[in-house]
Amino acid sequence: MDAHTIERLGDELYDAWKARRVLSPLIEREPNISLRDAYAIQLRTVSRRVDAGETIVGKKIGVTSKPVQDLLGVFQPDFGQLTSGMVRSESEGVDLNQLIQPKAEAELAFVLERDLQGPGITATDVIRATAYVAPCFEIVDSRIRDWKIKIQDTVADNASCGVFLLGDVKGDPRKLDLTLAGMVLRKNGELFSTGVGAAVQGSPVNAVVWLANTLGELGLPFRAGEIILSGSQSSLVPVTDGDELVCQVGGLGTCRARFHGRSAL
């Protein structure tokens, strides 16, 4: 795909994000978008956000579970870039007015205390480089109409990033069983879904290893201080004004997200 088309599609996605409106699936208009093209489009949209004043604060890993990979017909995860404008906190909650068609996912976040340069990174390296892990919510959002996404659409759309918030609790990965830690998600006090770390690439740390090595192939390092969202351990939760989600990670603690306002769709 030529550079001009990549730029145009990236700009369209950026404009859609800014105006909070949706586009028809890119793959319907440009059936030949490769995964590589999709990442180039993503880079364009993210660059536009950085040009507008945001900074890169980390990465998210998506499409990490077998059911979602089967749904999208892929055999590996994808990734997107987290920017400063996506950061929310437990105390402020999530203002849905800034989103289009959000859904929440419960995950484990890794916060790095040193750089990691792939390829050749193993799980041991990731644990050594991790300052702490925290339970978190990622609020995914799509600039594609009705979430009718193929893998190229979601990758181009920055892996359907919306906003995210980390729980205040911090865990030492050297003291936790990240593979077998249970994940319990409650919505407005009611049990919504149960999961376990192993649902993410066998273990959340494996997802981080995958991304370190995937980015390494492109010459991109993880930087100290970056936040890595390792992939959903829950089903997608629809959220609306007044909802409260709490996720509990066994041995670690909880993250609480309160939602207010009204999303565009």
Partner: peptide, 23 residues
């Protein structure tokens, strides 16, 4: 924490089902 215990069941070495005890 009896409600957040993660569980993975493997059959012949492959994870076949998993959840947390709050289920």
């Amino acid at each position: 924490d009896l409600d957040t215990l993660g569980v993975v069941m493997e059959k012949n070495g492959e994870a076949v089902t998993m959840s947390a005890s709050a289920a």
